[in-house]
């Protein structure tokens, strides 16, 4: 990993918002230009810090949504009701504004194109964000590794990256399945319910495929899915997890 060769501690730096895109009624993608960004791996995250006029500071960690292609980074932020940071990022921040960030960080929940074997991605809600970065990295590298995304989402209107997911699903190597938990679209044969053992058996890679599995979502979602995978015979060492909580983003 080239990035770890840069042996330095991490400091805060200021990026500039270059674009904002609505993804759903509560989530939006923020594109940033960061002059000294060293590049990142798919799955890494960054910390955002806001400072109030009285000096009060709050920071939160957000997954990077984009694959590194040499210019710019993107975050996708889901608004947390009564959150300290996400309402500002979703409702207030606009193109041209500065944003204080620190990153990239995290070397565990990452996918590298040179990694052998199939990749299984399982996301709950905005847990899809780092998985989207992995699919984008897969596409940018023209990887031939078979990749599957299982995306648990409340209803069709809650799906983040609707058009981008259609694009990546064009690849013969990529398969995407939606698991609707509250409201399914017309024509969906599975009634709205959470991911269960039966669904994992029918749409996810099996232990014999030797996939590396990435599970990201709220803590209860991740615990449930990881337990189902291990119960189905998957090697726990090949199941990587990232949990986020009610305080926003991954944390």
């Amino acid at each position: 990993m080239e990035r770890t060769a840069i042996r330095r501690r991490l400091t805060w730096q200021t990026g500039t918002v270059t674009e904002v895109r609505e993804e759903t009624s509560t989530a939006r993608t923020i594109a940033l230009d960061v002059p000294d960004w060293p590049g990142h791996l798919a799955g890494q995250h960054l910390d955002v810090r806001l400072t109030a006029p009285d000096g009060y500071r709050a920071s939160r960690s957000y997954s990077i949504a984009s694959a590194w292609t040499g210019a710019g980074i993107e975050l996708t932020v889901e608004q947390v009701p009564d959150g300290e940071v996400s309402p500002y990022l979703v409702d207030v921040l606009k193109v041209g504004d500065p944003l204080e960030i620190r990153g990239p960080v995290g070397g565990w929940f990452v996918w590298k194109p040179e990694q052998p074997g199939p990749v299984q991605l399982i996301g709950g809600g905005s847990g899809v964000v780092p998985l989207m970065a992995m699919l984008r990295a897969h596409s940018a590298a023209a990887s031939t590794a078979p990749a599957r995304l299982l995306y648990s989402v409340r209803r069709p209107a809650s799906v983040i990256y609707v058009s981008d997911l259609k694009d990546v699903a064009m690849s013969e190597e990529v398969a995407i399945t939606f698991a609707y938990t509250r409201e399914a679209p017309p024509g969906e044969s599975r009634e709205p319910k959470r991911i269960d053992a039966e669904l994992l058996k029918s749409v996810a890679f099996q232990p014999g495929d030797e996939p590396t599995t990435y599970v990201c979502g709220p803590t209860p979602f991740v615990e449930t899915v990881a337990d189902l995978l291990v119960a189905a015979g998957h090697d726990p060492a090949r199941v990587r997890t990232e949990r986020f909580g009610p305080t926003g983003g991954p944390r």
Binding site: L10, H45, L46, D47, S59, S61, R102, G103, V105, G106, G107, W108, F109, T219, T241, E242, R243, F244, G245, P250, R251
Partner: peptide
């Protein structure tokens, strides 16, 4: 949460 959140 999990240790990922301590990365920064």
């Amino acid at each position: 949460l999990d240790g990922n959140a301590a990365a920064g």
